[in-house]
Write a protein that binds this DNA or RNA. Structure first.
Length: 957
DNA sequence: CGCGTCACG
DNA sequence: ACGTACGTGACGCGA
């Protein structure tokens, strides 16, 4: 067989005599000319594609049931099959670097020296990927001493005469190989989409055609390979230089025509230049024993392929392999596809997992007679605990009416008590269930039990105790995962649940829950209780392997559920009359400002539209634009503040923006959120949202009520006690995050400063500016430095904040770290440990995964490092206040108090109290808050709590 | 529904 | 692969 007449292995079968209309349009433009076209040669950059697959699927966290990661294999196979399916290559090979040092390392010691080792989770998949490629019959090309780039470069050059060459890679460096017969297939933004890159695309994307790409890369250097370029010359300068002078030689011949800065940089670079050029040049002329024949696929080995995919539990990939490679499944492979037992977590395709229906293998009972209910009640009362779920008429707990309750005592069996049954109406039936639902010896399991607690409260029942909440368990195991029941069932149980929308329909076609057939509703309700109980077992098993996470659940999250439910149910009162007065004032001011802005700009436009505003400021008024967003000019506070020095309209715009914000978000919005039944505003405290362990608040968000500006303070004044004569009492931790940072650092100077009750920012200023006399400006700067430490400090960020150069900011940071060596080493150690383990923890053991610490991309890696530095601090503060809330709530319930807890704002708790009780409440709250810090591990640094009381939230501070 | 903006800790 | 300090949620605009 010769290369030009043979049928490619992936070609359409020979039996197809007539070309069939292809359901997938042929992406290869050359195929438009049928018949004589050259064969297609596809060269895959293996490692780069593996990396891409690994990071693209990272958040899917795919693994086998025993925890071996499989995301990279899945992603790689998926891309590979896509290529085969869509382009039907005549020749196809996957290349990898060889492990030996290459000539580049020899010429330049620091080559790729900044590159972190691949994460273990990726390394462990490389063997499987290699096996996959071989089992598919695809040639694997590795040559000792050469990188994949050079192999691809040489093959591309060698065969471009005889083939249409496609290089499959996300790597921009390969752009230099693009040529008449050579193009790049670059993975697109969306999974499994490829972008065809030819000469024109290279030129428009990089400002230089492929022929000039090596020179461009030489000038700019390649940070990902640790190759330096000419200092101060970026892609923009480089491409304009090349456009003018054609090549590096041309540029160096015309140095005298360049700006002094560029000239100087190029002169310094002159000596290094040849080496850099050699390093960034991909070899195209290696003497390799590569024949086209060697790049031709051989027969796939279905047995090996299916054995591999069965072991990796990649069922959908196995299914695709059948279609794409046009092979028959081996006889034994039916066993492979049965490999996942009904209860097994499916590790396959996160988008389309083959799941077992949730109810399969379970027994669901509709309880719609008095006798059946009596029997169930007995069973429940003699149980040690059960899973429970309420079905209601609305997602809003204040509107919701019960349609039924489901229970599951043992996995695989559930009961649904239907309140549409005559004689089993909600009110009387719930009353009969009350002792059971409130029985402290019978633990309750469920998904988001706060919802059920709130619904049942309306029926006079205090559902308790919360023994296990599946949503929160998932949150504690991995705060950034998804925690809804449907996803949890798919991930942990391999079960496909019936969704609420499937029950009642969507949009206008949706029906009321009482219109659903009772049997269907029962199956749905039973499913949820059944799944919750099964999930508990699956999640508990994982928690038991990490005792500290089980502790976070039991000590912090589970006990907090009923505390938050009580706070939400209580709600907070709003002085609507006060807000109405503010609204009038603000509207008047806005009218005035609008007129002034129109006059100053000479235009009438929508000030609320950043697009229109940007157009007026920068196109019409021609003010200097310094910052851009993805969509146009930036008009944010920083930009407007700078413009205020140049044009008076900017300060009016700032004022306008501020008023508009407060009006829209608070003054007008809050009164609309008052519940007509209670006359109060009831926020939702979300317990499974944030990556750090904090709560969040929504509908409305009461954790971002203004306080910084004058008008903001007025808005706070509108938060008042519900009973006339009562007071609001606020208790907040003073500098809790800095104290935690000091504790974690173990730095003696820092700890001493807190022990001496010093003004911490002034103390920092004294140290970093090395002076006894601290000016207000020095204190301000020190305060920013302290904040920077909490957020994962970087010169760029500090420079922005302080309006100084990055160099000056770096000096300040260096001084700080030198003076507080404990802080420096603890931050370093935190990152190092997290890099090794893959996650970072708080003092209580709460965990957050930070896989990006190993990213080859420096920006992504740095962002992950900041997250790693901040999370133990923010997370510990969250743990501490959660612990405090639990203790405070316990004392409030003891019967000695009439006070209630209303809100939590990260480091502050807000209470309503009768004046007679104020002093006692203060003492109790302060004591518990201070103790909580010690219980959570803050032992060397003192923790202080400030309290205040008044007739509104502003005065409570 | 994504984006830009800005309120809070 | 991304765009510059950490963590949130809500608003109005405009495609």
């Amino acid at each position: 067989m010769t290369s030009d007449n043979q049928m490619g292995l992936f070609d359409a079968p020979a039996t197809e005599t007539q070309p069939q209309p292809d359901p997938v349009p042929d992406k290869n433009p050359d195929n438009a000319i049928q018949g004589r076209q050259k064969p297609g040669l596809f060269l895959l950059d293996g490692m780069a594609m593996v990396y891409r697959a690994f990071y693209a699927l990272q958040q899917a966290r795919m693994s086998t049931r025993d925890g071996a990661p499989t995301g990279a294999v899945f992603g790689f196979a998926s891309s590979l099959f896509r290529i085969i399916e869509e382009y039907r290559p005549d020749y196809l090979a996957v290349t990898f670097d060889s492990p030996e040092k290459t000539f580049r390392h020899e010429k330049y010691e620091a080559y790729k020296a900044n590159r972190p080792a691949p994460p273990n989770d990726l390394i462990s998949q490389l063997g499987d990927i290699r096996e996959l490629i071989l089992a598919c019959g695809i040639p694997l090309v590795i040559m000792p001493g050469f990188e994949a780039d050079d192999l691809i470069g040489t093959a591309a050059r060698k065969f471009e005469e005889s083939c249409r060459v496609f290089i499959v890679t996300p790597d921009k460096d390969m752009s230099q190989l693009v040529h008449d017969g050579v193009r790049i297939l670059k993975p697109g933004k969306r999974q499994n989409e490829f972008e065809l890159v030819g000469s024109a695309e290279v030129a428009s994307q990089f400002g230089a055609p492929p022929e000039q790409f090596i020179d461009l890369l030489t000038l700019t250097g390649d940070t990902s390979d640790n190759i330096p370029g000419a200092k101060g010359i970026g892609p923009k300068t480089a491409s304009s230089l090349l456009e003018k002078y054609g090549s590096l030689e041309g540029i160096y011949a015309n140095l005298d025509k360049l700006t002094p800065k560029t000239r100087q940089s190029l002169e310094v670079f002159r000596e290094m230049m040849p080496l850099v050029r050699e390093l960034v040049t991909i070899r195209t002329n290696l003497d390799l024993p590569l024949t086209l024949e060697a790049l031709h696929a051989s027969k796939p080995d279905p047995e090996a392929l299916f054995a591999l995919l069965a072991r990796l539990e990649l069922k959908s990939i196995a299914a695709r392999a059948l279609a794409v490679l046009r092979i028959a499944a081996p006889a034994a492979s039916s066993a492979a596809s049965d490999a996942s037992a009904p209860t097994a977590a499916s590790a396959d395709d996160p988008g389309d997992p083959p799941l077992t229906p949730a109810g399969e293998g379970s027994e669901y009972h509709l309880v719609d007679t008095g006798e059946a209910f009596d029997t169930l009640l007995e069973k429940l009362e003699s149980s040690g605990g059960f899973a429970v779920d309420t079905e209601t008429t609305s997602l809003d707990t204040f509107e919701a009416e019960l349609a039924g309750i489901s229970f599951s005592i043992k996995p695989g069996e559930a009961f649904f008590v239907y309140f549409g049954t005559p004689g089993l109406d909600a009110k009387t039936t719930v009353a009969r269930l009350k002792p059971l639902l409130e029985n402290p010896a019978i633990g309750k399991t469920g998904q988001n039990l706060k919802y059920d607690i709130l619904v049942l409260k309306k029926y006079g029942v205090e559902l308790a105790p919360v023994e296990f909440d599946t949503m929160l368990a998932s949150y504690v195991l991995d705060p950034e995962a998804r925690h809804n029941l449907d996803d949890l069932a798919a991930l942990h149980l391999g079960r496909q649940t019936v969704k609420y929308s499937e029950l009642v329909g969507t949009g206008k076609a949706a029906i009321g829950i009482f219109e659903v057939e009772p049997q269907k509703l029962s199956d749905y309700g039973c499913q949820d209780a059944d799944i919750a109980l099964k999930l508990r077992h699956a999640l508990e098993e994982r928690l038991e392997k990490n005792p500290e996470l089980l502790d976070v659940c039991r000590q912090l999250e589970f006990p907090l559920v009923s505390v938050l439910a009580r706070m939400e149910h209580e709600g907070v009162s709003i002085d609507t009359a006060h807000l109405a007065t503010l609204a009038v004032k603000v509207n008047e001011e806005l009218v005035g400002l609008t007129e002034r802005i129109y006059e100053a700009t000479g235009e009438t436009f929508n000030i609320d539209s950043p697009k229109q505003l940007g157009h007026i400021l920068f196109d019409v008024l021609k003010l200097p634009a310094r910052k851009a967003t993805k969509t146009g000019y930036s008009t944010n506070v920083q930009v407007l503040e700078e413009l205020a020095l140049l044009h008076p309209v900017a300060s009016d715009l700032l004022e306008y923006r501020s008023l508009q914000k407060l009006k829209g978000t608070y003054i007008e919005a809050l009164p609309k959120m008052i519940n007509p039944l209670t006359g109060r505003v009831h926020t939702s405290f979300n317990q499974s949202i944030t990556a750090t362990g904090r709560l969040s608040s929504s509908n409305p968000n009461l954790q971002n009520i203004p306080i910084r500006t004058e008008l903001g303070k007025e808005i706070r004044r509108a938060f008042i006690p519900s009973s006339p004569g009562n007071l609001l009492l606020s208790a907040d931790y003073s500098q809790i995050e800095l104290r935690i940072a000091a504790e974690l650092s173990g730095d003696p100077m820092l700890i001493e400063a807190f022990r001496n009750r010093e003004d911490i920012h002034a103390a920092t200023a004294r140290v970093i500016f090395d002076t006894a006399e601290v000016t207000p400006d020095m204190r301000r700067k020190a305060k920013e430095v302290n904040f920077g430490v909490l957020y994962g400090i970087q010169p760029f960020g500090l420079a922005q904040r302080l309006g100084i150069t990055q160099k000056e900011a770096k000096e300040i940071i260096d001084t700080y770290m030198a003076k507080y060596p404990g802080m420096f080493s603890s931050l370093q150690a935190t990152i190092e440990e997290a890099r090794k383990r893959g996650y970072v923890t708080t003092l209580m053991g709460r965990r957050r995964y930070v896989p990006d610490l190993n990213s080859p991309n420096a920006n992504i890696r740095k962002a992950a490092e900041r997250v790693t530095m901040n999370t133990p601090i923010q997370g510990a503060a969250a743990d501490i206040i959660k612990y405090a809330m639990r203790s405070v709530s316990r004392e409030l319930k003891s019967g000695e108090f009439r006070s209630v807890m209303l809100l939590q704002v990260h480091d502050e708790l807000l209470f309503e109290t009768p004046p007679a009780e104020e002093a006692r409440l203060r003492e109790m709250v302060e004591r518990n808050m201070v103790e909580a810090a010690a219980k959570c591990g803050v032992k060397s640094v003192p923790v202080e709590v400030e309290t205040g009381a008044g007739k509104n939230w502003l005065e409570a501070h």
